[in-house]
């Protein structure tokens, strides 16, 4: 199973780090798209098939919470799992993100293995190189 992944962050450095973590994590990635804010992310989503979105919260133009809201209003986009990777770690912010459909939440700063483990968890990838779908009922996955 290969993935198309969208990384949304206004920091080029942070997008690069996340892209490298993904590359080192054993994911079979077809395309790794990038966007610098929520508006650009929606454009990428409307033009490409994306399996997983990794998004910052604090961004110009359209922030990560607004992006989640827009995605949850769209029948297609709301099925795509979103992991928030952000510096904003207070409980209210986390609740706000989960209430709007985020599947995972990773606080910056993070170690590469923390990022990898969160992504594994969200896409159902196991350390043995299998996905949950390889030997589980497909219905047990939530996307």
């Amino acid at each position: 199973m290969s993935f198309n992944i969208l990384i949304v962050d206004d920091s080029n450095s942070m997008r690069t780090v996340i892209r490298k973590v993904i590359a080192m994590s054993g994911f079979d990635v077809d395309n790794c798209f990038e966007a610098t804010n929520g508006i650009e992310a929606l454009t990428v989503l409307s033009e490409n098939w994306v399996d997983l979105v990794i998004s910052d919260i604090n961004m110009p133009e359209m922030n990560g919470i607004q992006l989640l809201e827009k995605m949850s209003d769209d029948e297609m986009f709301k099925m795509i799992p979103v992991v928030m990777v952000t510096t904003e770690g207070n409980e209210e912010r986390m609740r706000e993100a989960f209430d709007r459909g985020a599947r995972g939440y990773l606080r910056k700063p993070f170690l590469p293995e923390e990022c990898r483990n969160m992504l594994y968890k969200v896409v159902g990838f196991r350390e043995n190189g299998k996905y949950e779908t390889d030997d589980d009922d497909a219905g047990s996955l939530d996307f």
Binding site: S13, N58, E88, E91, K108
Partner: peptide
């Protein structure tokens, strides 16, 4: 790197100081 470091230090500091309270940070 300077912007991202300031963003992470500030967000991490505020979350540690007052985890139950919400802060909004600028770019």
């Amino acid at each position: 790197c300077a912007r991202e470091a300031a963003n992470m230090v500030c967000g991490n500091f505020l979350a540690a100081m007052e985890p139950a309270r919400r802060y909004d940070m600028t770019i």
